[in-house]
Design a protein around this nucleic acid. Structure first.
Length: 348
DNA sequence: AACCCGTCCAACCGCATCGAA
DNA sequence: CTTCGATGCGGTTGGACGGGT
């Protein structure tokens, strides 16, 4: 229970390791193994605490350490495993031979986390963040429009009475809806274009779904290159929004399965599942999967169950419920613009 | 050339966990 | 069962470095 006092001891060197120290440590471990880290520094002739020696060995000197940039596959593995395991860096590291937990942690904090945030994903939950401000320009414009059209006094209303005003108001409402939907679809498509492939299928599918409502052109553009029965997860090409096949080379299902399942159930961490087929794992498992699949990582099944049978669309759309949950209104303050319109209110 | 700022990453710190006494 | 030492793990820090102004 108690804390190790080793690093509190005075007189022990701290800070960066010198080449001489490295050589001593490497030499000793190669000859004797590390044995007890506590006694190792003394036996190896190092003025360091055992903890520091262990860290230096595991993170730097170990001969099987892989150096250099993370490959795309490694990135995908990290993203996926993090969505399942959370910040269990050591557990994640066991699936990436030659990579240390420290290295993965650093890579996550400096690259992947930021990228997810930029894409509008919550890096902890791997779910889209609610961003009310995305629709703010439309809200402001519509508020101004509404003010002009019918937001004034009763007298003013009377003076504008007539079918003409009503028609214009309806047109404004429709414009508002289309504007918001278009904006959402475009945002998703843009996010997908810079996304790691783990995320792009959901984004593309969600954009497709929204596009179907608001923009036939966008829908056609996305749909023409979408293969809804693709056997593996897909990604969206940066330039064109085309869906590209992308396999997932790790098979991270292991002893952590139980823990992962628990975590999924507790937090609804991810919008995608995990399935296995001949050492190729679907990042999204949105095409049916098989019996060994982990259960869905999302608690958004309500939203998903209302959608077409296509599994991909289901999981993807579930993950892109813009309100941040199935029970929330996906758009901010609908009552502001459609106070008396139950249809619109329900829709929103 | 000097400064600023952001990024990267090795290393540290402190808590958690495990196992032996 | 309790205590305590050893180790593991995750969060955080701080220095090196590079690019921009």
């Amino acid at each position: 229970m108690g804390r190790s006092p080793c690093c509190d001891e005075n007189g022990l060197k701290k800070g960066p390791w010198t080449q001489e120290e490295d050589e001593k440590l490497l030499h000793y471990i190669q000859k004797n193994g590390h044995g007890s880290w506590r006694t190792l520094p003394r036996l190896a002739g190092l003025n360091r605490c055992g903890k520091s020696c262990r860290l230096r060995w595991t993170n730097y000197l170990r001969p099987d350490i892989k150096r250099g940039k993370f490959s795309h596959e490694e990135e995908q593995t990290i993203l996926h495993l993090h969505s399942v395991l959370g910040n269990k860096w050591s557990a994640i590291a066991t699936h990436l031979p030659g990579r240390t937990d420290n290295e993965i942690k650093n890579f996550w904090n400096t690259h992947l986390k930021k990228r997810l945030i930029q894409m509008g994903f919550d890096p902890m939950t791997h779910r889209p963040r609610t961003d009310f401000f995305a629709a703010l320009p439309q809200l402001i414009a519509l508020a101004a429009l509404r003010e002009q059209l019918g937001g004034g006094t009763a007298a003013a209303d009377q003076s504008r009475a007539g079918a003409g005003v009503a028609i214009v108001q309806q047109a404004a409402k429709l414009q508002y809806l289309q504007s918001l939907l278009q904006s959402a679809a475009t945002t998703i498509a843009a996010a997908a274009s810079s996304a790691p492939s783990s995320y792009t299928e959901a984004a593309a599918a969600a954009a497709l779904g929204l596009g179907a409502i608001c923009s036939p052109q966008l829908t056609a553009a996305l749909d023409s290159s979408t293969t809804t029965t693709a056997p593996v997860s897909s990604s969206v090409d940066n330039a064109s929004g085309q869906l590209l096949a992308c396999t997932f080379p790790e098979a991270p299902v292991s002893s952590e399965e139980d823990e992962a399942n628990n975590q999924q159930q507790q937090t609804g961490l991810s919008s995608y599942g995990l399935s296995r087929a001949d050492d190729v794992v679907d990042v999204f498992a949105c095409h049916g999967g098989n019996s060994s699949s982990l259960p869905p990582l999302t608690d958004l099944s309500d939203a998903a169950s209302n959608l077409p049978v296509d599994g991909c669309m289901r999981s993807a759309t579930a993950s892109f419920s813009f309100g941040g949950g199935s029970s929330c209104s996906p758009l901010p303050w609908p009552e502001l613009f459609f106070p008396d319109d139950p249809l619109i209110t329900d829709f929103l």
